[in-house]
């Protein structure tokens, strides 16, 4: 997929392998994602979609190959510098991964608190993203009191609050009904329009059939092709 390299690559993967024990989860992955791309990684369960995203957000290290994020080679980044690099990437998970003992506000604020932003900026920014996802009135609610769709919108707000360069979403609509899924997908499109690079891993055909963007087909840890919709 190197032929599709745009003018401003934010993710570059060269001959990337990920091996768990004796099994290859990812096999010779070559992929370039340019700035403001909307990329779907499509494939059945077990295809390696989550592994691919985990490598991009530095949740794991590659077994072989090279990954560059915004021009920075991840293999050469010192461990202490990883948090700074991670702040360029927002992540949304299928299971939301919100901290249940934190309010909606605290869950979202955590991202920019960790980056050392000023209190006033944090308050302003959290309200802004909550307005965007339509949950401003739930600011002091704890996640267990929210519906699945609302929790995913909070997760999306958390991923977006740091103005990341790349937003990764791993099966973001997997646990949601059609209406909620559409709402979450519309929010992703909205973030894309605002300039974010979006990478969505999904096995939901309905999602990428109605979207415009690149679709990379992954199967058994290998890229089998790419289509543009």
């Amino acid at each position: 997929m190197l032929d599709d390299a745009g003018p401003d690559p934010v993710v570059q993967m060269y001959h990337v392998y990920k091996r768990y024990g004796s099994q290859d989860a990812l096999h010779d992955i070559n992929l370039i994602v340019s700035k403001n791309d909307f990329l779907f990684i499509a494939g059945p369960s077990g295809a390696g979609k989550t592994s691919l995203l985990r490598l991009i957000f530095m949740g794991e290290e590659v077994s072989r190959g090279q990954i560059l994020i915004n021009g920075i080679n991840l293999q050469r980044v010192r461990r202490t510098k990883l948090p700074l690099l991670r702040r360029n990437i927002g992540v949304v998970f299928q299971d939301f991964r919100l901290i249940n003992s934190y309010t909606v506000y605290e869950n979202i604020a955590l991202v920019i608190e960790a980056a050392g932003r000023q209190r006033r900026y944090i308050q302003k920014k959290v309200r802004q993203v909550l307005r965007m996802v339509g949950l401003e009135d739930r600011i002091y609610t704890f996640p267990p009191k929210l519906s699945g769709g609302e929790q995913q919108r909070v997760a999306l707000a958390r991923a977006a609050v740091g103005d990341p360069l790349i937003l990764l979403a791993d099966e973001p609509t997997g646990n949601l009904d059609t209406d909620c899924a559409d709402m979450v997908f519309d929010l992703l499109k909205q973030l894309h329009l605002r300039g974010s690079t979006i990478i969505v891993a999904t096995h939901d055909r309905r999602l990428f059939e109605k979207a415009q963007g690149r679709i990379v087909l992954l199967n058994n840890g290998r890229i089998e092709g790419e289509i543009r919709s």
Partner: peptide
Amino acid sequence: AELEIMRLVGAT
């Protein structure tokens, strides 16, 4: 889980 989330969001 909470600490893992902190790591993912770029906490040092």
